[in-house]
Computed example of a mutant assay.
Amino acid sequence: MQCWLCQWLLVKLVPLYKHIADLSGKSDPVLPVPAITVISGGNHAGNNLAIQEIMILPVGACSFEEAMQIGAETYHHLKCIIAEKSGSSGCNVGEDGGFAPNVSSFTKGLDLVKEAIDRAGYNGRIKLALDIAATQFCIGKKYDLDFKAPNKSGQNFKTGEEMIEMYTQLCADYPIVSIEQPFDKDDWEHTKLFSDLRLCQVVGDDLLMSNPKRIERAIHESTCNALLLKINQIGTVTEAIEVVKQANEAHWGVIVSHRSGETEDSFIADLAVGLATRQFKAGAPCRGERLAKYNQLLRIEEELGNQATYAGENWR
């Protein structure tokens, strides 16, 4: 945080999240539902899984503290399950702290997470989310789900229509409530076709780039229904507040997100509470740069006491 901002907050004698709430016109701070990374793939891990993240959302918790307990317990049950099935080497973690078992199919990864939720005793209290990050394996107008497999014989290419069919089946078979970047950053057509099915929250990451002009187009064309807010994409806090207002006016979901190569700076935790975004993404309950954000949210909830509101089932 810059020195002038520290001095300004000291003059105002308010916490950072409260100052952000004042700037954005929000009256009631809300503790967000964490989208906790449990399995990593894509360019964030050394396995053969094409998608970048499988996440759990503890929407059935009564507080942020309980949400983190549910998330951490499920995460560690998953570690035990992976070790049982593929040995301790499968418990290596990716860049965001999610485990990187050597699975190649979406369903195998989701089945592991489903088993961990069951073993932890949290069935019905956790929903699932996927970050496909499809831009990284889009070749031409097709998607190569085997782009990481060594010595592959015959690439597993899917058209946009086939990807929609796959997502539709996944949403039917698993409690998936959110899919991030399901298509290439410039594949507006298939993103809209999938979003029109209203099967889950469809999150624009590379598609939107936290850019007000791209967000405006997506709102006008009904391309997706949620914004992934990466503050270093848009550049300033003022601009971040404006794009969140854009998303709110369109009745979109908003997820404040970490980035790859994170530090222990916890500013985005205060940002999520101050803007009342209700969704927050900071990786796994593992590694200091991820835990710093979650710990700050725990401190904020403790400070708010009886005034603390956890988004929970109202995560959108």
Score class of each variant (00 low, 15 high):
Ile56Gln: 01
Leu57Ser: 06
Ser89Trp: 14
Ala67Cys: 07
Ile20Pro: 04
Gly71Tyr: 01
Ile82Ser: 06
Glu65Lys: 09
Val38Asn: 06
Ile70Gly: 04
Ile39Thr: 00
Thr37Phe: 12
Ala50Ile: 12
Ile39Glu: 00
Tyr17Trp: 05
Ile36Thr: 15
Glu73Ala: 10
Phe64Pro: 01
Ile81His: 02
His19Thr: 09
Phe64Gln: 02
Val93Arg: 13
Gly41Met: 11
Ala83Gln: 13
Asn48Ile: 08
Ser88Asn: 14
Lys18Ala: 08
Tyr75His: 10
Ser24Asn: 13
Cys80Ala: 15
His19Glu: 15
Val38Pro: 04
Ser40Phe: 11
Cys80Pro: 00
Pro32Asp: 03
Val33Ile: 10
Lys26Ala: 06
Glu66Ile: 09
Ser24Gln: 12
Cys62Lys: 15
Leu16Phe: 09
His77Pro: 04
Ile51Tyr: 00
Ile70Pro: 02
Ala67Arg: 03
Tyr17Gly: 00
Glu66Asn: 07
Ile82Met: 08
Asn43Ile: 14
Pro29Arg: 00
Glu84Asp: 10
Gly60Pro: 07
Leu78Thr: 00
Pro15Gln: 05
Ala61Leu: 09
Ser40Trp: 11
Val93Phe: 11
Ser40Glu: 08
Ile39Tyr: 00
Ile54Trp: 01
Cys62Asn: 11
Ser40Val: 10
Pro15Asn: 06
Ile56Met: 03
Gln52Ile: 05
Gly46Met: 05
Ile82Ala: 09
Thr37Met: 13
Gly41Arg: 07
Leu78Cys: 01
Glu66His: 12
Ser86Arg: 13
Gln69Glu: 09
Ala21Val: 00
Pro29Trp: 01
Ile54Asn: 01
Cys62Pro: 00
Leu31Ile: 02
Val30Gly: 00
Pro32Phe: 06
Cys62Trp: 03
His77Val: 05
Gly42Ala: 13
His44Gln: 10
Lys18Ser: 14
Lys85Trp: 06
Ile81Asn: 03
His76Lys: 06
Ile39Asp: 00
Val93Gly: 07
Ala83Ile: 10
Ser24Phe: 15
Ile20Tyr: 08
Ser40Ala: 14
Val30His: 00
Asn92Gln: 15
Asn48Trp: 14
Ile54Met: 09
His77Arg: 09
Asp22Ser: 15
Gly46Trp: 01
Ile39Cys: 02
Asn43Asp: 13
Leu23Pro: 08
Tyr17Glu: 02
Val93Gln: 13
Glu65Trp: 15
Cys62Met: 07
Ala45Asp: 11
Ile51Ala: 02
Gly94Asn: 08
Met68Leu: 10
Leu49Arg: 11
Ile51Cys: 03
Gly71Arg: 01
Gly87Cys: 13
Asn43Ser: 08
Val38Leu: 05
Lys26Asp: 03
Val33Phe: 11
Ser63Asn: 03
Ala83Leu: 06
Val38Trp: 04
Asn48Arg: 09
Glu84Ile: 05
Lys18Asp: 14
Ser40His: 08
Val93Ile: 13
Cys80Gln: 10
Leu49Met: 06
Met68Thr: 09
Pro58Thr: 03
Asp28Phe: 09
Ala83Lys: 12
His77Met: 14
Gly60Glu: 04
Leu49Glu: 05
Ile82Gln: 05
Gly71Val: 03
Lys26Asn: 15
Gly25Cys: 13
Met68Gln: 11
Gly46Ala: 11
Ala50Asn: 11
Glu53Ala: 09
Gly60His: 04
Ala35Leu: 15
Ile51Val: 07
Asn92Val: 14
Gly94Arg: 05
Gly41Val: 08
